[in-house]
C-alpha cells in the first residue's frame, strides 16, 4: 500500500473501487469515513460523512454528506437492494471531538458515529473494523484487493490491520 494512487473522498463525497484500488480520507475530524464492502464482487464504496441528518432539500445534491442519506447511496452504488444489505461489511473511521471543553457542545462526531452504527444495525450490516471517537483527527487508506487498512493519527503510531479474513477476501496463492 502507499504506491498505488489513493482515491480520496473529500468532505461529503463518495468514491468507489472494484477488484483493485485504494480508497481513503484525509484529515477526518468529526466526520466519519464510512466504507461498505461487498465480498462477492470485492467492491467497496466510501462516503465522507459530515453530519448525522439531512437538511431539507440538501440531500439530493450531495447524499454522501449526511449519515441518513449516505448509507442508501452506498447501497445503490454497490447495486445492493436493502433486503440483501446483510451480505455487506462496514468500516467506520473518525467521529472525533477535536475541540475539548466547547461551551456549546454539538457533539457532532459522537452523533455521526451513533447514527451510522444504528443505521448499520438496522440494515443488519456487520461492522468489521472501527477507529472512532476520542479527540484526534485521522487519515486512512483501505486496499480493496488485499483488505489491508491503515489509519494514521497525529502523535500516535499508525494502526495497520489485515481485514481479509473478516471481509471474506480469498487469499490468492503467491
Amino acid at each position: 500500500m502507499g504506491k498505488a494512487e489513493v482515491k480520496l473522498a473529500g468532505m461529503g463525497e463518495i468514491v468507489f473501487a472494484r477488484g483493485a484500488g485504494v480508497i481513503g480520507c484525509i484529515g477526518l475530524g468529526s466526520c466519519v469515513g464510512t466504507v461498505l464492502f461487498d465480498p462477492r464482487v470485492q467492491a467497496a464504496a466510501l462516503a465522507h460523512v459530515m453530519l448525522p441528518e439531512a437538511q431539507e432539500g440538501d440531500a439530493a445534491v450531495q447524499p454522501g454528506k449526511y449519515a441518513t442519506t449516505a448509507l442508501p447511496a452506498l447501497l445503490r452504488m454497490l447495486d445492493t437492494p436493502p433486503a440483501f444489505a446483510s451480505r455487506l461489511k462496514a468500516i467506520l473511521i473518525g467521529g472525533g471531538e477535536l475541540f475539548q471543553n466547547r461551551s456549546q457542545a454539538l457533539r457532532i462526531g459522537e452523533r455521526n458515529v451513533e447514527t451510522l452504527q444504528r443505521l448499520l444495525r438496522e440494515a443488519r450490516i456487520e461492522i468489521v473494523f472501527e477507529h472512532i471517537r476520542g479527540s484526534s483527527g485521522r487519515s486512512f487508506e483501505f486496499d480493496v484487493a488485499t483488505g489491508q487498512i491503515r489509519v494514521r493519527a497525529m502523535g500516535s503510531n499508525c494502526v495497520e490491520k489485515d481485514l481479509s479474513a473478516v471481509l471474506g477476501i480469498l487469499r490468492r496463492a503467491a
Binding site: M11, G27, G29, M50, L98, F99, Q100, N101, G137, R138
Partner: peptide
C-alpha cells in the same frame, strides 16, 4: 476551545460545526 491536530481535521471540525443547522 482549543485543538492541536492535522490541519484538515481541525479545519473541517470548525466548518462542519458552523454548517450545522
Amino acid at each position: 476551545a482549543f485543538a492541536a491536530d492535522m490541519a484538515m481535521a481541525v479545519l473541517s471540525s470548525i466548518l462542519v460545526e458552523a454548517l450545522y443547522g
